[in-house]
Design a protein around this nucleic acid. Structure first.
Length: 350
DNA sequence: TATATTTGACCCAG
DNA sequence: CTGGGTCAAATATA
């Protein structure tokens, strides 16, 4: 990407951060009238903007060091810009036994698989249903108690790992500080062609995005609010998703925001939820070696709430699309302006 | 019966 | 040596 363009986008993000900061400041000034969740939202916005800037800079950095691979016939995920995706490294079907050297290779490759993290907030009112089913089937293959973490970490791989050599995997960690927040780290892209995959809205969504060919960085995914901006569209365009997505959500599940003492009981249902939580509700910010996506919390605003089914639609749409083996759902950076507007929308608190 | 989850054991990078 | 990640046998579920 050209420096000029990068600069422009960094400026945009900084401006956005400043704007949020100003609103936050105003919000703090009018104590009593504004709700704390708004401040939280704004603070998040600021952080996200900063993170986006970092992401931009990091992307630029990694590109100069290692040009993004041009995958033939495959649209590379915008998330993978910070690392290079690698092909299959494991063949259980063949019963191949790796030697020491080969094992090391496997580890090495695993390490370099594209990796990004999302923070998913389970909203008390919308519940987890809306986050269920990202259109991919995951299989839990392990769970570990992590040192210093209150909750165990769950490991999932794509169900089609062995049948279609799909290397997509995710690990899910419930946040210590905020049990309604889950850190979901994805690794590798889905290369499988899942039959149960609901028709991703990506195609139709991309149509609305003028189907323009974006350079990789342009495909970076940003503010989650952006998705909400398109909620109405998605709601329409993801019709038919429900039939596919609901079965999971119909599992016995109750996951309201609850006090600590109730969370134990919800642990297993949490796992159910996690196994299908969206991989791609977006808002990346880079950490040192991965992209970081933050799922918005504090959606108490009725304008954001819409209905539960709405949220399900949005999430299903967004998630099945982004990681879709058929087509990636990408949000061009240019669309950020829209999210700014939404922030105001959100903030009809003002 | 097929498929998914659980869970203790194992591997290995740091 | 420790702890994160994975394997795979046992078990559960559809």
């Amino acid at each position: 990407m050209e420096n000029r363009e990068l600069r422009r986008r960094v400026d945009e993000e900084l401006a956005r951060g400043e704007e949020c900061m100003r609103r936050l400041q105003r919000s703090m000034d009018e104590q009593g009238t504004s709700r704390p969740e708004l401040r939280d939202l704004l603070a998040r916005d600021v952080l996200t903007s900063l993170a986006n800037v970092r992401c931009l800079l990091k992307s630029e950095e990694s590109w100069s060091a290692e040009p993004p691979p041009v995958a033939a016939g495959v649209t590379e995920s915008p998330r993978s810009i910070c690392s290079s995706p690698l092909g299959d490294f494991y063949d259980k079907n063949s019963g191949t036994v790796f030697g020491d050297q080969e094992r090391r290779e496997v580890r090495k490759k695993r390490k370099t698989l594209p990796k990004w993290t999302e923070q998913v907030c389970i909203n008390g009112e919308t519940g987890p249903e809306g986050l269920l089913d990202d259109g991919y089937s995951w299989r839990k293959y392990g769970q570990k108690d992590i040192l210093g973490a209150k909750y165990p970490r769950a490991y999932y791989r794509c169900t089609h790992k062995y049948t279609q050599a799909c290397e997509a995997a995710k690990l899910v960690q419930r946040s210590d500080q905020n049990p309604s927040v889950f850190d979901i780290t994805y690794r590798g892209k889905h290369t499988c062609n899942q039959s149960v995959q609901p028709l991703p809205p990506a195609a139709t969504f991309q149509e609305t995005q003028h189907q323009q060919q974006q350079p990789p960085l342009d495909q970076l995914q940003f503010q989650p609010q952006l998705l909400l901006n398109f909620k109405s569209e998605l709601k329409v365009k993801t019709e038919g998703l429900d039939a596919e997505a609901k079965p999971t959500s119909e599992a016995s599940f109750s996951f309201p925001l609850t006090p600590e003492n109730q969370q134990e009981q919800q642990q297993h249902s949490f796992d159910q939820l996690i196994s299908s939580v969206s991989p791609s509700f977006v808002s990346p910010a880079t950490t040192s070696d991965s992209n970081y996506y933050i799922f918005p919390c504090g959606m108490e605003n009725p304008h954001l709430h819409a209905s539960e089914s709405d949220l399900t639609d949005i999430i299903s749409a967004a998630t099945s699309a982004t990681n879709s083996p058929i087509v990636d759902l990408d949000f061009p950076l240019e669309s950020l302006e829209l999210s700014h507007d939404l922030s105001f929308d959100v903030g009809e608190y003002f």
